[in-house]
Every structure is written in C-alpha cells, then in structure tokens.
Amino acid sequence: MMREVLRLENVAKSFGSVQALRDVSLTVNTGEVVALLGDNGAGKSTLIKAISGLHGIDRGRIIVDGKEVTIRNPRDAMNLGIETIHQDSSLAVDLSIARNLFLGREPVKAAFLGPLAPLDLPQLKRQASDLLRRVGIRKNLDADAPIKALSGGERQSIAISRAMQFFAKIIILDEPTNNLGVEETHGVLRFIKEVRDAGHSVIYITHNIHHVFQVADRIVVMRQGTVVADIKAEGTSILEVEAIITGADLHELEVDARRS
C-alpha cells in the first residue's frame, strides 16, 4: 500500500536575484522511485539541497510523514530519515573509506563523553567491510584505505553505500552514475530497485533518460525553477519526456527522430 512520505508545497528559493526555485510542489510515496529531470540549471540540485538541509527555503512547506517540518541543517534531515548523495563530491578524500562511511554517525564506546568519545574502531572497520561486501563492491577494497586512492567510480560507490546503511526512508541521489562504468551503473540501478522493493522511497536525479525508464515509477520534470510535469513512467515515452524537458514541440521531435 502506498503512503505519502514527503510532500513539498509551494517551495521557493532565491540566491540574490537568481530565483532558483519557484512554487515547487511535489509528493513522494513509500516504495516509489521518482525521477527528477530537467536541463542544466533547472533547479534540481537546489531542490534536493533544501530537502537535505544544506540551505533553507524562502517560502513553502515541507511535510514528512504527514507532519510539517523545518529542516534547518543536514542533521535534521538525517534524523527525519532523509539520506542524500550530492552531485558534488560528498567524501572527505583524506579520510579512510571506513571513516567516511560513518562520518557524522560514528560508532563510539563511552558515548557519554560526547564528541570526545572514543571511536569503536574494530566495529567501524567490521561494519565498513560488511557494507562494502553487501553493496557488491567486489573489488577488494581495504576499509582503511584513504578515499584519495580510489577512482571516481569507486568513490561514487562508497557514497552510495553510505546512504544505504542507515535504512533511510527517503534516499536522494543527485546524478549518482556520473563517472561510473557500465557495471557500476547497473549496480546503482539495481540498488535503486532494491531500495524501492524494501519499501523505501528514492528521488533520482539524472540526465540519462534510458536509466529513468529502467527504474522510475514517476517522472517529475523541472524547468527554470518550477515543476512543469509530473507523470507516471508507464504510458509515456522517451521522446515525450525529452520534449517536456526542453520545452520543444513534441511533433518537431518526432520528425527529427524519424529523419535521423
């Protein structure tokens, strides 16, 4: 049974004179993959940064599980069960894989010591190794290796496994398959399906429409800071979606397609 987990109402956000978001409304249900599409600069990253607490919103309401919430910082978002993999690197490259995986949520002993509490290093390492295996990173990565020593794709896989581990209600992926090889890309798509099947929700931002049709239940298209379409993936076509994204006439596109 589908239930609404996240609802945005009339969200707006400006950076100085640039109005990055205007009147964005959107809902996400449990067990649903929502693809968020739009050209460069459409406002996709800005929208998910607002949901994940990286910057506030100027106007509008955010409702999680039926309750209106204020997301002031990333910790608020994480506590609400929202995990995000940002488009720009979200790893601290000087730290080890294990330390990155648990950054901000480190397992500690003697927790009463607060920030000074000692890390539970054996636990950290064990959980990290388990996680790497579970996510299907088959390459023999040492959890103690610094991120610096990994390829771009390997780094991305680490960021994704980090989002998986806390069983967030909503996982947001901002262009997660950039820099990924074929196998890793399939890994990400498989991961998205698994998350959905487990009843979690995914917001998936990408420029690759073929990927969208492989995993998305619903397609939301943004243009110039606002949502211009919100359609079921079933019963629409790549051409149609492309037309909405660019704002072009569907008929012209069809002609183009036939010519080429």
């Binding site: 994940s52 910082n73 990333p74 995000t84 720009d88 690197s89 000087d94 901000g104 949520r105």
Partner: peptide, 10 residues
C-alpha cells in the same frame, strides 16, 4: 579535507 562533505553529513 572537505568541509562541505562534512557539513552534508551533519
């Protein structure tokens, strides 16, 4: 190492 990444993790 990466201030924005740290902030994004709360």
């Amino acid at each position: 190492s990466n201030r924005n990444a740290a902030i994004a993790r709360g």
